[in-house]
Structures are given as C-alpha cells and as structure tokens.
C-alpha cells in the first residue's frame, strides 16, 4: 500500500532559482537563506520518496487566460521546465508518475473534487524551485531528479481562488486516494508558495513576520482552525501574493493526524526575510512510522 510519509512546505521564489542557477548561493545576501535548507537536503537524501505529490501554482506559464483550472493534476509521463521569459531553468525534465496520478485523479473526482486532468504542460519555478531547494541541482542533461513528481497546480492567480477550507478537504481526499493505491510507494506531499509577499502596487514589499510565524505555529498544531481563515485575511495580512499559502493546507490536510493518527513530528522549521520580495518559510513534518 502506498503511504504519505511526510509533508514539506516551502516558498518558491523565482529569484531563488536564479541564485541557484547562477551559482550565487554563497553570496552574503543568499547564504543565510540556503543555509536554512542544508538540513532539508540531508533529510531528503535520507528520506528519499518514490513520488513527490507537488502542490504549486502556475504563474501564467502553462495556463493563460484562455483556460484557468482551479485544480489541475498532471497525469503525463514528463513535464518540461518552462521558459518564463528568461529561458528555461537549467534543470532536468520532471518525470511524472502517470499510474499513481491517474489513480489519485480517479479517487478524488469520485470524492467530489472537480479536477482538471492534464497530460501536457510545462512546469514553472513554482514547481522546480522547491525541487532544487530540497534535492540540489542535478545536471540538466545527464542528471535527473531523484524521484518522480506529480504536479498539482492550484489557481491562485485569478480570483476567486479555492478557499483554504476547500484545500484542506482536498488534502484529506488525496490521503485517502494514496492509501487506496496498491503498490508499496513512499509518497511525500509538498505545499509550496507564500509566505507573506506582495508583488504589485504601492503596497509591494509587504512582509508580516508575526503573521507568518503564527501561520507556521497553527499549521503544525491547529490546521483545522487555520483552514477557516478567509481569503481577505491572507491578502490583508500577508500581501496579495500571500494567498499562495492556501496551497500549504492541501499538504497539511493529507497528514495522518487529520484522520485520527498521531501528530506529525516537526523535523525542521525555518524562516527568513527576504528573498527578493518574499518572506521564506519552510517546514518538514513527518508522519510517525
């Protein structure tokens, strides 16, 4: 039986990708940020999953205004790193897990989540930056990511975006789906985006350290109540792009304690300001074995 062993939460700032790709990780500006992921890379190597179910948002890359899915699951065999305007990131092709992805799609659609099934899409920094932070930088041509990845894209660009509550319920449906899959796979679920940031208007640059840290506290200990936070709280307190944090609730909803299991173990917690315009938050939660 497949099982979700851990969840990982991290911001996915494009500038982090650029710093990695341009070899600037030891510069004074970037060093404290990447230091926060040293543990994570070791942890990932020691806890390497078969599949990462990677919740992220597309930033006007695969999806234009022609078509905006609320939830899109990647069931394809491979996904190319996108050219977001700077050229594609020099990272390997992302290899999917069509069988598990299709199984999850089947299960959560029967559970009344109205997914869009996607077999062909490019993936942007929202997906590849978390992979780089957790797995390091494999050679784009000869190398490979250390595991397969199921991309799960959430619309947080055009309002209305799905509520935190809806995301939290979806996470629970994803856990049920994974646990009903026959093959014995180690699956991690990652929630990405956030934390506080605003990329637009006279309020650009907003950071709310207190709110972010309280979000991390509550994500660990009281996610059910946290999931009831209304949209405008995110925008008001954590900036217009802080809304990305609803995606963390999908990952959190998939953890065992939400279904009566033991509370997760906090393997790692990190918070740093700034990365470009953004507050970087990062958590690793392990289900007990």
């Amino acid at each position: 039986m497949a099982r979700i062993t851990a969840s990982v939460y991290t911001s996915h700032v494009p500038a982090i990708g650029a710093a990695l790709d341009l070899g600037r990780t030891t510069e004074p500006y970037w060093q404290p940020l990447f230091a926060g992921y040293d543990f994570s890379k070791r942890w990932f190597a020691e806890n390497r999953p078969d599949v990462v179910f990677l919740v992220y948002n597309d930033h006007a890359t695969a999806f234009s205004l022609d078509l905006i899915p609320t939830f899109a699951i990647g069931t394809g065999e491979r996904f190319q790193p996108a050219d977001e305007g700077w050229g594609p990131r020099p990272v390997p092709t992302v290899i999917g897990h069509p069988d598990l992805a299709s199984h999850i799609a089947h299960s959560v659609i029967q559970d009344d989540f109205d997914l869009t099934i996607v077999n062909k899409m490019d993936v942007d920094h929202g997906l590849t930056v978390p992979l780089s932070l957790m797995c390091g930088q494999p050679d784009p041509v000869r190398g490979a990511w250390p595991c397969t990845v199921i991309p799960f894209a959430v619309n947080v660009v055009q309002y209305p975006v799905p509520s935190g509550r809806r995301c939290f319920m979806l996470g629970q449906a994803i856990r049920r789906a994974v646990e009903s899959y026959g093959p014995d796979l180690n699956v991690q679920i990652w929630g990405t985006g956030g934390m506080s940031h605003q990329l637009q208007g006279p309020r650009a640059g907003l950071i709310n350290r207190e709110w972010d840290n309280r979000f991390l506290d509550r994500l660990i200990t009281d996610p059910d109540a946290l999931s009831r936070t209304p949209h405008d709280d995110y925008v008001r307190e954590a900036g217009s792009e802080g809304i990305e944090l609803v995606m963390w609730l999908i990952a959190r909803g998939a953890m065992a304690d939400i279904n009566g299991g033991a509370a997760p173990k906090v393997a790692h917690r990190f918070y740093h300001v700034p990365a470009s315009n953004t507050a970087v938050g990062h958590l690793i939660l392990e289900n007990s074995k």
Partner: peptide
C-alpha cells in the same frame, strides 16, 4: 471583501 486594501488590486 478585498476591495478596501490600500495599494492593492485583486485580479478577479
């Protein structure tokens, strides 16, 4: 409820 936030335009 997001229309009373200063310096911010929500893309709806």
């Amino acid at each position: 409820p997001y229309q009373d936030i200063p310096g911010t335009t929500i893309f709806d």
